[in-house]
Nucleic acid binder design. Structure first.
Ligand SMILES: [Zn+2]
Ligand SMILES: [Zn+2]
Length: 809
DNA sequence: ACCAGTGTATCC
DNA sequence: GATACACTGGTA
């Protein structure tokens, strides 16, 4: 043995383990960033070399690694530092991070080596390499070094299926219930793909299947013909139709004065050693994309790569086309979550192997393409929530991008018309200098925004209802009369309209018709949600509850309205407003269930096949419909008052963004914002797209109530099976331990809750959460580390930490 | 004595 | 995640 390396495993147990370099690989470079096959127990796994290990750990047998999977490292030192950083933030092994961000093909140990032998190619399995004699291994190592020994993925091959070889009665003992169940199942269904079998019985069937195979009762073979499920491989989504064109047309026109000034500020920062961050605060239509492309061109000229990120796949596609057009000679790599595994792997490998600077364009995950030392990273629409990955490995792309820019010496550009309040706060403090584009670049006119008073739309519920009464009115209309009239006119003119709604399916927020505010928690300044079954109002931040019905705590009023009510009957309402036969398209979470379906609906609408599109926020994201001249934000009040401290910020961003997109073209657009409280100064700020005004108002509120950026927020999520008696014990333990730890930590760390989650039951599991407010992140990690220890290992209680939660769900 | 089925500790 | 080993409760 000639030394040791530490290897991070890509699958459980994800640990970083020490392996010896075997003699036959002595002369070969095994640098960090190289993938290797290693033995673990009796199996062979893939991992990544993280470092040379000078002193192996004592007391364990150190095994030699089996074989490298590439000749040159896939990842460089800076990338591995980023992995370490992510692992530290998430308090997990680097291997787990790698297991999440590498394309599947690069994490599989099922590979085949081929090496020439007597004028023929001989296949070598990893196991054969493990068991090779030192002499064979040395010969193969020489072939590997010479490049004549190759490695390839095992190929997915046809899916394997299970087939019966015997007829009943089964030659097994009557007590062997699992075996009998499997045999009966196969008898009934005939040949069945393995994935269907494991899907039906669960993962624990593995040993049973193998035992029956050895007994010769079942056979594992290639699928022939169709599966009895009819579940064939035609499920791949059809190629999505071309989405509507990008809103910001990028021309060759000379830069505006403002754009020139911005370039003068930004271009010296490209490839800045030690990194630099700048906010580009540019109103819609001010030509931010143009700026990005100019910067990208200069960065490539300096010999460094560029990463351009958009919040959504469709937007990344627009950006990709713009880059191809503006920089026709550059190598451009598109990467996002909707690519096939093979395409993702190809993009990853291209980025890793690139010798010339490249441009990477994509959504969030494209940030993890291993391009060497990008000199420019752009996050367009930096305020967008989708830059934070929620599930599995949680990360905030903005933070990761910042890390990369600093570590590898690049400029990070955060672009938005309506920046994240936290980003703008950093800009206002001078921590992130800001470049402003305040004028529209083209000739297009901003749309007209009108605030529509909904106050008269609902007949107020009978005033004689005594205290404690407060029944909601029988029927509420979604559209105010003025909106309905505008809609009818628009359609009559042959133009199109969009009606924006909020997401449904949560417990409602109640609006007091007497004082025109929502019922809210006095400790958190957060809307209560009404839980009908418990007849209570609940604050999802601190868990405070209040009986309901009861008079309004602020004004004593007894007339309430659930926000967002009535949208179920919108279709009916529309049919009363629109001429008979007018086509109305719908876009919501359900209709967008299938990948590609969203784009289909949008393309159909863009083609003019339907006149009115009813949908949620996903509409706002950069889709452009030139024939849409009317946008109605139907329940803006609901968005403004959602139980989330960022509700106002999100609503401001959404509405300003929508307004910027309406009716671009020769026809001026109109945006109608419906509210029951037109006197709220917030709406005037939206109407004027007055970001500064909104920012100072919102910042004051955040400071008063101790929300970010004046504190760090984290959510400890706890879930357990709904009839697990250990669940509630664990829940109260978690709350108690968190509180104790917070008191011990001092320094203003506060714990709220536990409170039930907004979706209190998912998949038979009850869900709760505790919120932590802290002056800094480390204190939160310390608390979480303590509380994680109180949940017994192997229990059904699951606990996770969400830093700066975007969605409380 | 033996085995099927299940639970659980370990893997450099 | 895969595997081996230890344990349980049943059959022969
Ligand atoms: Zn009131
Ligand atoms: Zn509260």
């Amino acid at each position: 043995m000639v030394g040791f390396v530490s290897v991070a495993l890509f699958c459980a147990p994800f640990a970083t383990l020490t392996y010896a370099v075997p003699g036959h690989l002595a002369g070969h470079a095994l640098p960090p960033g190289l993938r290797v096959l290693v033995p673990l127990g009796r199996s062979i796994r893939v991992g990544m070399i993280l470092a040379d290990e000078p002193a192996p750990p004592q007391g364990v047998e150190i095994k030699p690694l089996v074989w490298p999977l590439e000749r040159a490292p896939l990842l460089d030192a800076a990338y591995l530092d980023m992995i370490d950083n992510l692992a530290a933030r998430q308090m997990c092994h680097p291997g787990r991070v790698l297991g999440q961000i590498l394309p599947t093909g690069l994490r599989q140990s099922k590979v085949v080596f081929t090496a020439p032998e007597k004028a023929r190619l001989r296949r070598q399995t990893p196991r054969a390499l493990l068991e090779a004699t030192p002499q064979e291994a040395t010969e193969l190592a020489a072939q590997w070094a010479a490049g004549v020994m190759q490695v390839s993925g095992a190929g997915r091959g046809p899916e394997r299926a299970l087939r019966l070889l015997v007829d009943p009665p089964w030659p097994v003992r009557p007590g062997a219930t699992a075996r009998i169940a499997l045999l009966d199942y196969l008898y009934e269904r005939g040949q069945t793909p393995l994935s269907v079998v494991t899907g039906y019985f669960g993962r624990d069937m593995g040993p049973v299947i193998r035992a029956l195979g050895q007994l010769g009762l079942v056979e594992m073979g290639a699928c022939d013909g169709t599966s009895p499920d009819g579940e064939d491989s035609c499920l791949a989504p059809a190629a999505a139709p071309c989405p509507p064109e990008a809103p910001e047309e990028v021309s060759d026109a000379p830069l505006t004065d403002e754009q020139c000034a911005a370039m003068a500020h930004l271009s010296p920062l490209l490839c800045a050693p030690g990194g630099a961050v700048r906010l580009v605060h540019g109103v819609t239509g001010s030509g931010k994309t143009r700026l990005y492309l100019e910067l990208a061109r200069q960065c490539l000229d300096m010999g460094r790569s560029v990463v351009l990120l958009a919040p959504e796949v469709a937007l990344a596609g627009h950006l990709y086309r713009a880059v191809r057009e503006a920089l026709p000679d550059a190598t451009v790599i598109l990467s996002h979550g909707s690519l096939s595994p093979a395409a993702r792997e190809a993009a990853f490998r291209r980025a890793a192997a690139a010798r010339e600077p490249v441009v990477v364009v994509g959504a969030r995950s494209a940030l993890f393409l291993p391009v060497a030392a990008p000199g420019l990273i752009v996050l367009d629409e930096e305020h967008d929530a989708s830059f934070k990955q929620e599930e599995r490995l949680g990360y905030q792309a903005k933070e990761v991008a910042f890390f990369r820019a600093r570590r590898e010496g690049g400029l990070l550009v955060l672009g938005s018309a309506t920046p994240d309040v936290k980003t703008y706060h950093a800009a206002a403090r001078g921590a992130v200098p800001c470049v402003v584009l305040s004028r529209r670049a083209g000739t297009s006119q901003p749309p007209e925004i009108e605030i529509v008073d909904m106050g008269q739309t609902v007949k107020a519920p009978s005033r004689q209802a005594g205290p404690g009464g407060g029944k909601p009115p029988e029927r509420t209309a979604v559209l105010a009369q003025a909106s309905a009239a505008a809609l009818a006119e628009t359609v009559a003119r042959g133009e199109q309209a969009i009606i924006l709604l909020n997401r449904r399916g949560y417990a409602p927020v109640l609006y007091c018709l007497d004082c025109e505010t929502v019922l809210s928690c006095p400790d958190c300044d957060l809307a209560y949600t009404f839980h009908k079954t418990r007849q209570r109002l609940v604050c999802h931040y601190c868990g405070r509850t209040q009986d309901f019905p009861a008079p309004c705590a602020k004004c004593g009023g007894t007339h309430f309205l659930p926000l967002g009510a009535g949208s179920e009957s919108l279709a009916e309402e529309l049919s009363g407003v629109l001429p008979p036969g007018t086509a109305v398209a719908r876009l919501d979470r359900d209709s967008a269930a299938r990948p590609g379906r969203t784009e289909e609906i949008l393309a159909e609408f863009a083609s003019g096949a339907s006149r009115v599109l009813v949908g949620t926020q996903m509409l706002s994201k950069g889709h452009h419909f030139p024939r849409v001249t009317l946008v109605i934000a139907a329940d803006a009040d609901m968005g403004r008052n959602l139980p989330d401290y960022r509700a106002a910020e999100r609503t401001f961003q959404l509405l300003v963004q929508v307004a910027g997109r309406a009716g671009r073209g020769d026809i001026p657009g109109k945006v109608l914002i419906q509210t029951r409280n037109p006197g709220d100064p917030f709406w005037e700020l939206v109407r004027g797209a007055d970001y500064q005004g909104f920012f100072s108002q919102e910042l004051a509120r955040r400071e008063k109530w101790g929300y970010p950026p004046f504190s760090k927020l984290a959510l400890v999520r706890i879930s357990f099976p709904k009839d697990d008696p250990a669940g509630f014990t664990a829940l109260s333990d978690v709350g108690r331990v968190l509180r104790e730890a917070a008191t011990a930590a001092g320094g203003g760390v506060r714990v709220l809750g536990p409170a039930p989650a907004s979706l209190p039951l998912i998949g038979g599991r009850k869900r709760y959460h505790c919120m932590i407010k802290s002056p800094d992140w480390p204190a939160i990690r310390v608390l979480f580390a303590k509380v994680r220890a109180v949940v017994p290992r192997g229990s059904e209680v699951r606990i996770s930490l969400d830093l700066d939660p975007v969605d409380m769900l």
